[in-house]
Structures are given as structure tokens and as C-alpha cells.
Measured scan of single mutants.
Amino acid sequence: MPEGSASLQLAVGDRVVYPNQGVCRVSAIDVKEVAGQKLTFVTMRREEDGAVVMVPEGKVLAIGVRKVASAE
């Protein structure tokens, strides 16, 4: 991610809310080559049905992904 860009610090195992998809758990953060460029992807699995969603790390905030609020 370019320096100075806002990002959401995620780790494998974090629970997040993905708008219009529901609650997901981060299952992987991997670098993949797409069209000759190396990009970091956040892979999330929906808790409702296990569907897998992959989002480029740089788009996580723009999409509206946020961490699940704690009970505290």
C-alpha cells in the first residue's frame, strides 16, 4: 500500500463487517500476482454460509469493511 494511505490493520482471525455481505472472518492475507503486478489481498470467509470474498488490501476501507465492535 502506498505510504501515507489510510488502511485498516487486519490480521488473520479478525472478525469484520463487510457491507451487504455480513460478518466475515479474515482467513488469509496473501500477495498474489495479477496482470504482472504483485498485490496484497485480504481473504475473508462469511460466517453465515462460508462464502469466500477476496479484496485488494488497498480497497478495504473504500468498500467500507470495518472491525466488529467489541462488547466493551
Rank of each mutant, 00 (worst) to 15 (best):
K38W: 11
V52C: 03
M1E: 12
G50E: 03
R25D: 02
A69C: 08
L61P: 07
Q21V: 15
L61C: 07
E72L: 10
D30G: 10
E48T: 12
G22S: 04
I63Y: 06
D49Y: 02
Q9H: 11
E33P: 03
M1A: 12
M54K: 06
V17D: 09
S70K: 10
L61D: 11
K38Y: 12
S5P: 12
V42P: 00
D49F: 02
K32C: 04
V17L: 14
P56D: 09
K59A: 13
V52Q: 07
A11K: 14
R15L: 15
V34R: 04
K38T: 08
V65W: 03
P56N: 07
V55A: 07
A62S: 09
G36W: 02
L10V: 07
G64I: 11
P19K: 06
P19C: 00
G50M: 03
I29G: 00
Y18E: 02
A6I: 13
E57L: 15
V12E: 03
Q37W: 04
R66F: 07
V16C: 00
S7H: 12
V65M: 09
P19N: 08
D14T: 03
V52H: 05
Y18C: 09
M54E: 11
L10R: 00
Y18Q: 02
V52E: 12
A35L: 09
L39E: 09
T40M: 08
V53H: 05
I29R: 02
V65R: 04
T43D: 02
L61K: 14
K38P: 05
V31F: 07
R66D: 07
A11H: 11
Q21D: 03
E3D: 12
N20D: 10
E33Y: 12
K59M: 15
R66A: 10
A28I: 04
V23Y: 14
A69S: 13
G50W: 05
A35S: 09
Q21R: 09
Q37E: 12
G50L: 03
E47K: 01
V31I: 12
R45F: 13
A62M: 08
R45N: 08
M44V: 04
V23R: 04
P56K: 06
Q9P: 10
A6M: 12
P2F: 09
V68Y: 06
Q37L: 10
L8W: 09
R15C: 00
A51Y: 11
A35C: 05
G36M: 02
C24N: 00
V34T: 05
V23E: 04
D30H: 15
A11R: 14
C24L: 09
S5C: 04
M1V: 13
G50S: 04
M1N: 13
V60I: 15
G50F: 03
A71R: 10
V26W: 00
A6H: 13
D30M: 10
V34E: 06
A6P: 13
